[in-house]
């Protein structure tokens, strides 16, 4: 569905990403892993036209640069990490913004707007908090609001940039399970997700990309990409041993 060919990003004379090529097929959850500074977030930015790049990114064969912003938003939904410090919009208002790409006239709502908003609120479990101000929500709820907004967009591909960063375990599970359910709803959907947590990448991912210093170091099923040799080389430490040590803490 989404294909990147020789994508490179330079910022301020520095090469952040160089020559990345991969493709995402329908029904697939692609995990992007790598140490800090490997260019994971920049990759998500390039795929969503948030940063200028060389090379080509295409959705179902068509260059994403040729889409109008509204068209592209109907195919790509993006969830970024980041704190929200803005005004006191309500949960429902922010989720409703996800329908912007479908709005037609100046004052009329797009077709099926209310239904899509309610369905998205239900999917992220915020139907009972729809009138709450964003300023009163916890970090986990806030992230679910923006996930709901992306769901309301009804995209084909979800791009997630560390969706559970700084979140407690139950929230991590809620978000990832929510995305998994969404993915299971159609064969023509796909997810590209940047994660820090390598265990989560193994648990939820169908395929994985390992980035290292802006280059694609390895690509394939999580068992291969997240193997101990690959991890040890990328992170410069005994990752597998460390993880097992962590797990060992639970067995006493």
């Amino acid at each position: 569905m989404l294909t990147a060919e020789h994508v490179s990003v330079h910022l301020g004379g520095k090469s952040i990403l160089s020559d990345i090529s991969f493709s995402l097929s329908g029904g697939e959850w692609l995990m992007v892993v790598g140490p800090n500074g490997a260019g994971k977030s920049t990759l998500i930015n390039a795929l969503s036209r948030g940063v200028s790049y060389t090379g080509r990114v295409s959705f179902e064969g068509r260059d994403i640069q040729s889409f109008k912003p509204r068209q592209l938003a109907r195919y790509l939904g993006v969830l970024r990490q980041g704190a929200y410090g803005g005004y006191g919009f309500t949960v429902e208002e922010v989720v409703r913004l996800g329908r912007y790409a479908y709005s037609q006239g100046l004052f009329s709502h797009g077709k099926g707007e209310q239904e899509a908003v309610e369905a998205a609120l239900l999917q992220v479990g915020l139907l009972d908090k729809r009138d709450r101000s964003l300023l009163t929500l916890s970090g986990g709820e806030l992230q679910r609001v923006f996930l709901g907004q992306a769901f309301a967009q009804n995209p084909r591909v979800l791009l997630l940039d560390e969706p559970t960063n700084h979140l407690d375990l139950p929230y991590q599970k809620q978000i990832f399970d929510g995305v998994k359910r969404w993915l299971a709803q159609g064969k023509d959907r796909g997810v590209i997700c940047v994660v820090h947590d390598l265990s989560l990448a193994r648990l939820y991912g169908d395929r994985a990309l390992l980035l290292q210093e802006g280059r694609l170091a390895c690509e394939g099923v999580p068992g291969v990409v997240l193997s101990s040799e690959q991890m040890n080389r990328a992170y410069g430490m005994d990752v597998c041993g460390f993880m097992k040590g962590l797990l060992g803490q639970w067995e006493t």
Binding site: G50, K68, P69, A73, R80, G82, F89, E93, Y100, F146
Partner: peptide
């Protein structure tokens, strides 16, 4: 409204 929520967010939902 989209800008007030965030400029990146505005781009993601399809605002030019």
């Amino acid at each position: 409204n989209a800008f007030a929520v965030g400029e990146d967010n505005a781009r993601n939902i399809g605002v030019n």
